[in-house]
Computed example of a mutant assay.
Amino acid sequence: MDLFGRTFQTLESSLDYATAKNRTISNNIANADTPNYKAKDVVFKNVLNDALTSSLEAKRTNARHLPFDNSGLQHSYKIVTNKTTMYNHNGNNVDIDKEMSELAKNQIYYQGLVDRINGKFSSLQMVIRGGR
Rank of each mutant, 00 (worst) to 15 (best):
residue 6 R to L: 06
residue 82 N to G: 07
residue 95 D to H: 09
residue 130 G to I: 02
residue 52 L to V: 11
residue 54 S to I: 03
residue 92 N to E: 10
residue 62 N to P: 10
residue 129 R to K: 11
residue 69 D to L: 10
residue 82 N to H: 13
residue 40 K to S: 09
residue 111 Q to G: 08
residue 88 N to M: 15
residue 4 F to N: 04
residue 129 R to M: 06
residue 51 A to K: 05
residue 108 I to E: 03
residue 94 V to W: 05
residue 32 A to C: 13
residue 120 K to H: 01
residue 12 E to L: 00
residue 41 D to W: 02
residue 124 L to Y: 07
residue 45 K to A: 14
residue 19 T to N: 07
residue 117 I to W: 01
residue 38 K to A: 10
residue 59 K to I: 14
residue 39 A to T: 07
residue 67 P to M: 08
residue 87 Y to E: 11
residue 108 I to P: 02
residue 47 V to R: 12
residue 59 K to V: 15
residue 29 I to V: 10
residue 66 L to N: 07
residue 21 K to F: 05
residue 35 P to F: 15
residue 2 D to F: 08
residue 56 L to D: 06
residue 2 D to I: 13
residue 23 R to K: 12
residue 99 E to P: 09
residue 1 M to E: 06
residue 16 D to N: 04
residue 83 K to N: 12
residue 45 K to G: 11
residue 43 V to M: 12
residue 77 Y to D: 03
residue 119 G to E: 01
residue 3 L to I: 12
residue 101 S to E: 06
residue 35 P to S: 15
residue 37 Y to R: 15
residue 122 S to F: 02
residue 36 N to M: 13
residue 95 D to R: 10
residue 24 T to N: 04
residue 119 G to A: 02
residue 106 N to V: 01
residue 8 F to S: 02
residue 107 Q to K: 05
residue 17 Y to N: 02
residue 100 M to R: 13
residue 66 L to M: 11
residue 21 K to I: 01
residue 83 K to L: 12
residue 106 N to I: 00
residue 61 T to P: 09
residue 111 Q to S: 10
residue 73 L to T: 03
residue 67 P to S: 14
residue 29 I to F: 06
residue 121 F to L: 08
residue 73 L to N: 03
residue 59 K to E: 15
residue 130 G to A: 08
residue 18 A to G: 01
residue 112 G to K: 00
residue 77 Y to Q: 05
residue 53 T to G: 03
residue 115 D to V: 04
residue 26 S to G: 13
residue 49 N to A: 14
residue 27 N to M: 09
residue 111 Q to N: 07
residue 83 K to W: 12
residue 41 D to P: 00
residue 46 N to K: 15
